[in-house]
Structures are given as C-alpha cells and as structure tokens.
Design a protein around this nucleic acid. Structure first.
Lengths: 197, 197, 197, 197
DNA sequence: TATGAATGAGGCTTCATTCAT
DNA sequence: TATGAATGAAGCCTCATTCAT
C-alpha cells in the first residue's frame, strides 16, 4: 500500500507526502472521529488540501487507507508472534493489546469490523492478512490447549471487534475481557494446574 | 417520554405525529446510521421538516429520543422477565434477543454504548433503568447457578454492547455469542490461576 | 385604530386581546428589535400565535400598528401642550421627551422615520396627525420668538427622527440635543432661558 | 484590511474576489438593508456562496467588513482635508458629503452609529480612526472660528449619525442640515463670511 | 373565536471535490 | 506536483403563515 492505484511509483517527495497525510489522517480520525474534515487532515499534515486529494481521490479512500494501515500493523505484530514460546500467552496478549489500542483509537474498531465483514472488499488484502496471521496464533494456542478447539479465526475476529467496541465506548475493559477470555478457554480445563485429575 | 419538555400534554394529533416522527427516525437511523438527515426522517414520517423540529428542537435531541425509546423498550422487556421460571434461560434469552435486534438496528448498539458510558447523561433515566432491570435478571441467574457470581451488571452491559456491535458489523452471531455465554457461565473448575492481562 | 379593517366592531374580549397583543409587541420590539419573532410576541401577550395573526394578518401589519400607537400617543401629548403657558418650553420640552423615549425604544425612532417619509402611507393618519400637532407647537414657539421662523414642521420632524436615532445608537444625548436646539433658535436672540432637558 | 485574518497575504485572484464580494455586499446591504441574504451578495458578486464564506466566515463578519470599509473610506477622506485652505468649508463640506452618501447607503448610517457606540468593538480601529480624523477637521474649524468651541468630536459623530439617519429615512436633507450647521456655528458671530473684520 | 400544531421556503454554514495558479 | 481558492449541494434550523381542533 505504498504506491498509488495508477501503478507508477511515486517520487520520493510525493511518497513522503503520502505518508505525512496518512499519519495525519490516522491521528485526526482517532481524535475527532471519522467525520473530521479533510481540510483538518491537510492542516495537520502540513500540506494543501489539494495534495490530500491527489493521493487519496476521495475521503472514503483516505479512510480506507487509514484502516488498511492499521490492519497491516496489527497483522505484522501477529506475524511476529508466530513462533513465540508460549502460544497461549501470545494469543491472549495480542488480543488484549489490540483491544487496548482500540480503546484509544476508534478507527481500530472500525478497521476490525470492516475486516470482519467477510474479510475482503474495502480493506483489500489487509483484512484477510490479519485474519490469517491471527489464525496462526489461534491454531498454536489451540494445539497448546490454551484455547478451546471449536472456534475459528472468523469468530475470534468478530469477538475482537466486539471487545474493541466495548472497550472504546462502554466504560469496561479488563473485566469484560476476562469474560471473553474465559469463554475462549477450553471448558474441560485441560491441562492446567489446579484442575481435577 | 410522551410529552414535550415544555410541559402541558400534547394534543392527540400532535402526539400521533410525534410518534410517527420517532418511529421514522428509528427506522431511518437504523438503516442509514445516525448521520442520516433530518429531512429524510421527515419524509419517511410523512410530515414537514418543521414538524420534526417542533417536536425535537435539535437533531441531537431527536437522536436521543430514539435511543431512549429503544432503551426503554429493552428495559420493559427485561422487567417482564423478572419472575420467569427459568432465570438462566430468561437472562440468556434476553441477551440473545437484544443482540439479534442490534444486528438489524445499528441504533440499538449505539443506545447500549451510550447507556454504558456511565449510565447517565444523554439518555437520562433510560440507561440506568435498563441496567437495573438487567441487574435483576443477572442476579436471579446467578442465584440459580446459571451465571458465574463474579460479574456485575456493568460488565454485562458492556459485553452486551460489544456483542451487539459484533453482530451488526462483523458477520458473526451465534458462534460468537456462544463464546460470550460460555464466558459468563460458572466454570466447572471454579478457582483457577491465569486471568487475562 | 381600535377596530379591524373589516369594519364590524370587535367583541369586548377580542378587543382586550388585541390590546394585549399590541402592548406585548411594543415591548418585545422595543427590547429585541423588530426582528423579534411573532411567536415571542404571542408568548409575552399570553395568547396563542393564531390570535396574533387573527388581529394582525401580517407581521408587517403588527409592526405598523405598534408604530401607529406610538405616533398616536406622541400626537396626543403634543395636542395636550397646545395651549401651554410657555410655548418655547412646551416645544423644546416635547422634543426632548420624544428623544428620551426613543433612546429606550428603538421603535419610536422607526415610527418617526416612517412618519417622515412623506407622512402618509404605512402609518396612515398617525403620521400627519403628529405632524399637525407638532406644527401647532412649532407655530406658537415661533410666534413667541423661541424658534427661528424659517423652519417648517417637516424639517422638525426629520430633525426629531435624526436626534432620536442619535440618542438610541450613538452614545450622545444632551450634548447633541443642545446643538440641535441652538440650531433651531433664532440667530438674533443669543442668550435665552430654557435649555434642553 | 486587505488580507484575511489567518495571516499570509492572499493570492491576486483571491484578493480580487474578496474585493468583489465586499463591493457586492456594500451595494446589497445599501439597497436591501443588512438583513439581505448572503446568497444575494454572492449572486451580485458573481461568485459561489462558498466563496463568500471563505473570505468572511460569518455573515456578521461580512457586515463588519462592509462597515469598516465605509468608515475607512470616510476617515481617509477626512485625513485628506487635514490641511485644506478653508477649515470651516472643509469641515462642513465633509459633514455634508457624509450625509449625502448616507442618504443613498443605509449602511453608512449604521457604520456611523456602530462607530459611535463607544468607538471600538465590532469595527475595530476604523471607528476611532474616523473619530480622530474628524477631530482634526473639527479642531481646525474651531480655531478658525467657524465652529463653536464647546463641542467635541464625540458629539459631532453622534450628530453626523443622526443627520445621516434623517437624510436616509425622513425625506429632508438640506433644510435639516442647515439647522444642524447653525447649531454648530458660534453663537456670537451670526452672519459671517470669513470671520471678524 | 382562540389555540397551537403543521408547513415549507429560505437563511446560514460546512465540506468534499475541482481547478486555476 | 503542490497549493489553496472556488464551487455548490446538502445539512440544520427559524419563522411567518395556514389550518385543523
């Protein structure tokens, strides 16, 4: 997602501008919600409004780019945990960090929801990419017995979106996450200290 | 919520119009989101734009009224289940129906979120009312051993909002609810180290 | 100006309502300017908006009625001074009181201006009536040598409107009136008792 | 007053548009009063409504700009007469021309009134500037014995506003001005071409 | 006749998008 | 390519006026 739809690679300065705009948009939308004006984004980025529209021909496309960037970052983080020592901790840790981020940036929640809506469309490859990376974490956690076997990546994505929403709007956080985590754990309490023989 | 803020009760025809507007708003906001125009609401209600503003002097006040109406309806339903035979079924059934509604009406989710944000403010008494009614269902379900004892109404509200969001946006539904419900049920092995972090 | 244009005399209660509306309009327009809403007038009068429009079919007609009432009152006061002992004092005193009133009620200035615009039209008989009454005061003051002989009632009306405006908007009052009064006095008789007040 | 509040000077074409809008506003407000619509101003200026709001973010700010422009023009004219040969003629001539202008442009009267209301606030520096320039003309005319010594610039401003109002609304003009001028002249030197012999 | 609810034109303002500089 | 001025559709809201109760 670093070149324009047209194909041709951007000049270095144009690329830099694109990045500035994207960063500004991320922050502005995070703070003011997605109804913030494009002008505001331009101001924050220190470029003219025309430059914003040159890189993102539509406000919607700008919004999409922000969501894609967020999803890509999450996917990258998930991929980095692919071979963590403790698969359960990796999975739950990742889940928790995403929700914490979402509490601060509404756009994260939207990105997750968007990605969940069938995991294609607007966000292009980013949704499926995240889902795949999350699927790997999930699989390993399931193999390790830390997560019940009968849930799939799709459900976890949805749960993630829901918890992110709850974290951002409704005042809860840890308490609600605890419920979701317990719901994700194996019912039988497989091999965990403290369970019956 | 059937008389205007000003005082004196409305004439029968005015009351009818108020209801028409409210119903139209509910539907319009459900379908198009809360950014739908007031004009659209008026059109759907079959009244002039002036009539909408006579009853709800601000778009915000109209939105609030819609949310309050939704919350009141949910609270009423919850209160109706106060003495249901099977407290567990009552609680989980209610939870599930709310989420199902939310899948169709985005406004329900917003109402829940709004209500959760400390349960006062914009939605007035409606938020706390729902929380209280839900608390009763929860308490009985807990007494009956159908729900774990260490969760409160606030967390359930937040979970409800999150699940509603997930249901409406991310494509899931029953599968995700299953996880949440399992998380709410008492563990077979009550005390167990390892909470989310 | 106590019966409707239609002819038929009003019932006692209707007449009372008309008066209430007129009084309310006078006060509301005085305080908020002529852009105050008709609804506000109805509220102040304690009647329904429909009643206001029954008596004054147009906002403009209501405004006119207010102006006419003011002019009639001024004309009546002027007529009451017709045979005052000191014609000069009567003339200047009247002038000063009108200006003082105008400082508080913007509508007075508008009434005078309206009346001056040819002294007919909108305000009907009221403009000419005031002009005539003022003319009498002026004539006697001129005969008594208190006012220069080469000014007519029309010019005095215009001067009155101008001073009223100045008094209401620009911060002046007595100082400016003094200039106008000196301008009205005969050149030949420099010092003379009776200053503005 | 040729650059926007924001800072940086406007591009040539933008400056031209700003001027067009201002001129149009001046004319529209002159003819229809200050309640004329912004849309009308845009139409008259031959620009889109958005352009008007880009230069003047509020209707009030547009109105203010018009008043300021008028006051500045008057102040400039007054300053140009600072060293006129005949101070009396300069003073009275200026006074008369202002009133004549006001007869055509209602906005002039409002500008003067606004400026008189303490000579600050809305019109910023423009009010005091005019008052100062007028004060110079007045002072020289007083030194030359053409104007009585016991009036100040404030009173003259107020008188100017009043006469402007009278000229625009009440039908008078020269006759009324004559009264005001006589009121301004020194009492002691009734008929006077050029001063004492 | 009185009431006040209903109406809708019209006003102000915002903002995504286009285009001349 | 970058800039930011210009555009105008569209949104919210007010208010004079009409009309059913």
């Amino acid at each position: 997602m670093t070149s324009p739809a047209s194909g041709r690679p951007l000049r270095a300065d144009a690329l830099r501008n694109r990045a500035k705009v994207l960063a500004a948009a991320e922050e502005v939308f995070a703070v003011q919600g997605t109804s913030a004006s494009t002008e505001e984004v331009a101001r924050k980025a220190g470029v003219g409004i025309g430059t914003v529209f040159r890189h993102f021909p539509t406000k919607e496309s700008l919004l999409e780019a922000v969501l894609v960037a967020l999803l890509e970052r999450l996917a990258a983080e998930a991929r980095g945990l692919r071979s963590a020592d403790d698969p359960g901790a990796a999975f739950f840790g990742f889940f928790g960090r995403v929700v914490a981020q979402a509490a601060a940036k509404q756009a994260v929640t939207e990105a997750l929801a968007e990605a969940g809506v069938d995991a294609r469309q607007a966000t292009g490859r980013a949704g499926p990419d995240l889902k795949a990376a999350l699927g790997v974490l999930l699989g390993r956690a399931q193999e390790a017995g830390a997560v019940r076997a009968d849930v799939g990546a799709g459900e976890v994505m949805a749960l993630l979106a829901g918890m992110s929403y709850a974290a951002g709007r409704a005042g809860a956080r840890e308490d609600v996450l605890r419920i979701a985590f317990d719901g994700l754990r194996p019912r039988e309490a497989p091999d965990r200290p403290g369970a019956p023989g």
